[in-house]
Amino acid sequence: MLKNRIIPCLDVKNGRVVKGINFVDLKDAGDPVEQAKIYSDGGADEICFLDITASNENRDTIYDVVKETSKKCFVPLTVGGGVRSVDDINKLLNSGADKVSINTAAVQNPSVVEESSKKFGSQCIVVAIDAKKNGDGWEIFTHGGRKETGINAIEFALKMEKSGAGELLVTSMDKDGTQSGYDIELMKTISESVNIPVIASGGVGTLDHLVDGIKSGASAVLAASIFHYGTYSVNEAKQYLASKDIPVRI
């Protein structure tokens, strides 16, 4: 039976690990290579690096981080943040990333998703959707949540599936950094709309939130601060999910 994945995410800035609260107020704390290794040894099903300020700054440091990490971690590594072109994707994959997540570029230039999934395969193309509640639906935001687009999140998810995305990483902008749980309605609506796996993100504060995320229909749950600040270990999270009859790899 296919297991639900737990994916710890590390926010990386200038080659160092940080975690933002609502995408601002960054705190520095650690070496991403060592952190990733701790996670993979602890049973993480995948590791995710998000190069958070990459849209604005020099991002070459991330290639070295990915290179070093991929020599030590033998679980899948997803890297996102500031990925603008097929060439950026190529460079990250060549550095050792297994998947690349695309956010702003997927909105501004959907052909990047189409071209890259054709060139490298859908299995390595993750489209990251940052969505915020707007009336009855959700609207997507780009540039690390700073720019509104007026685009409906569900319509965009369907379009990305069609363009060749292998997975969708869905983050609720309303919930991110609040530790009050995923936006369950958003996860459920997107999971039911598409036939590709959905990774739920944004808002985890307790282990029950991870349970709720999986029950909403997501194939995987992503969390940053609960693992990063040591509130829970990945193994504790897995044991808890297993105790709630959620299939995980232990």
Partner: peptide, 10 residues
């Protein structure tokens, strides 16, 4: 069943 079949399976 979602496709791709992504993740850890026995």
């Amino acid at each position: 069943y979602k496709l791709p079949h992504i993740g850890w399976n026995q």
